[in-house]
Design a protein around this nucleic acid. Structure first.
Lengths: 337, 337
DNA sequence: GTGAAAGCGCTAACAA
DNA sequence: TTGTTAGCGCTTTCAC
């Protein structure tokens, strides 16, 4: 079996208290004793049992992360950011997938609690359909951080992107290039599409360029079929419309738009400018590389981890809104028509 | 504070043993008493402390998963499979990222051990550069499953894709199309590149087509820069070589190869056939869609989880080898030169 | 500087 | 059926 602190104490002929002091270095120990203990630790290959330590200390260095799905690259990149920050602080990451199901989301969280996590990060939480008051009750005993939540509940820290501002930047960029007929591509089942559409309508109206026919809904926006659906949908539309630019709600749709143009023999960006949203790695894997609004998912992750640890340590909540910045690549250019 | 078993016992006027029996349902309890305890549990919102339970029972229901990187969707999809299987058995998943670094891989594993995991799954382990005997020592006290490992160490369970066979299929497919000059693209820091290279060399030698200059190492194979590195590396090489086909160790490299061809004005598949490996979602997002070998990452994950639990429970090791199947898309065709 | 001992929350003999 | 109690491995007062 694995060696315990008692084995080490026996081997070094000291008390367990002394071993603990050597291991944690928080109380003075005579150098000679320390050496003896260290040697015993080496020989027995002793590794402290963190479960026991945390049970005793009534605290934990594990945090839980719930994601709605792992099939979308977006989540992998956010998790990457969380993990990166956490590992620097020697926290561990317990991962659970809610499978796009609010009940499952609650179950994941309860499981985390019974495993004594010191805090929980929920990515794209589903606060609506969940049992009433679930989160309200939860926050009384748990440190919680929401990533990209549209619900505003008290006593929770939030990290999100400023998608309204990002959309303004994207549209202004196209307008500055002289584009007047700008298609807007959105999907269903996410508030973030609505945020962007509201901004699109406002901006275009203000310029006197608004045309409701330019709003295109491609259906499910995060599936494997999103790229193709966007492509086909656009190929239908563009026959009738004379747009010179397309603003899409995410990069998958943008890739679909790029493919549609290729299929229709349109040169990018000469004949058509396309700007995506997210900056998932895919966007610079394709050719031409996508101009897009960077959501910096890694930063979303690191910020969430930072806020959670702050919340755990100080009890203070905070809201962080990240700026989306424009990544100019090869799918946008001046309007030549 | 959170309610403990003692609080519940007090509230229900029973002993902690009775509460424990109710919670675990492993010993008979009078129905009336059970009701009373259940009510107390509800009212106090009691959630058992699994850390304490596991400390007592000397076992754990947490397993650790080490990945080399989260930037390649390959890993997210495998994790998805692991998580799916594990959650059915009420195991929890501790996730750690080794950042493509063997030392970090060992550190992640040691951390898991101190957190008392009942087993560890290592995806694409790096057994070469790691401290001598690290894994040999490890398996004496830990249940380990390797996913896609090249090294064969005793006392470990393995799940892998038959990358040797998959490579044969891919190469034979190209050979059948009449290709004779086939570039081989590989990376560093993963055993799976070596498996494929060995097969490549064997197959090509057998056909009398082997040319060591056709083996191209693009460096890190799972990073954000893998696509571009592959592209630049190939653009250098291809000036001197007259290959008609490229077999790459993963889809990221294949996308790099596609981009290199586009940059050099080569038509795919007319002037160059490219076959990837993995079948990550990216491979059908790009245009032309990638012909590739499907690794069925979800199955890789579920099988690994299954083997690990079997190993934990019975101590038995097993090897599972999954077949890779060819996904024909648009980047391969007959050799026209 | 060091040791003895209480206790973190829980389970499982053993008693009753 | 139920209660009492001894640990699981660790940290940390409180004595010495």
């Amino acid at each position: 079996m694995k060696a315990t602190i008692i084995d080490v104490a026996a081997k070094a002929s000291v008390s367990v208290a002394t071993v603990s002091r050597v291991v944690n270095g928080n109380y003075p120990v005579k150098e000679e004793t320390r050496q003896r203990v260290m040697r015993a630790i080496e020989e027995l290959r002793y590794v402290p049992n963190i479960q026991a330590r945390e049970l005793n200390m009534q605290k934990s260095t594990t945090i839980g992360v719930v994601v709605p799905s792992l099939y979308n690259m977006f989540f992998a990149e956010v998790i990457n950011g969380i993990e990166d920050y956490l590992s620097r602080d020697s926290y561990s990451l317990l991962l659970s997938c809610a499978k796009n199901n609010p009940k499952q989301e609650a179950k994941c969280i309860n499981d985390f609690i019974s495993r004594n996590v010191s805090g929980i990060i929920v990515i794209s939480p589903n606060t609506e359909n969940i049992e009433t008051n679930f989160y309200e009750q939860l926050v009384q005993h748990q440190s919680i951080v929401f990533i990209n939540s549209y619900a505003k509940l008290p006593n929770i820290s939030y990290v999100s992107n400023d998608e309204d501002m990002g959309s303004r930047i994207a549209l202004q960029y196209l307008l500055d290039y002289g584009h007047k007929k700008i298609l807007f591509l959105r999907g269903i089942n996410s508030d973030s599409y609505q945020i962007k559409e509201d901004t699109y309508i406002e901006v275009m109206k203000k310029k006197g360029l608004y045309n409701p026919a330019y709003i295109v809904n491609v259906g499910e926006g995060n599936g494997t079929e999103t790229v193709d659906n966007s492509m086909y949908k656009l190929m239908d539309m563009m026959l009738n419309l004379d747009a010179t630019a397309i603003f899409t709600c995410n990069d998958l749709m943008a890739v679909g738009a790029v493919n549609a143009c290729k299929k229709m023999g349109l040169q990018i960006p000469r004949d058509m400018s396309i700007i995506g949203y997210d900056n998932i790695s895919l966007s610079h894997f394709i050719e031409p590389k996508l101009t897009t609004m960077d959501q910096n998912m890694f930063a979303l992750g690191t910020n969430a981890a930072e806020l959670l640890i702050e919340k755990i340590q100080t009890g203070k909540n905070k809201k962080v809104v990240l700026d989306n910045i424009l990544i100019e690549r090869d799918t946008t250019g001046p309007c030549l028509r």
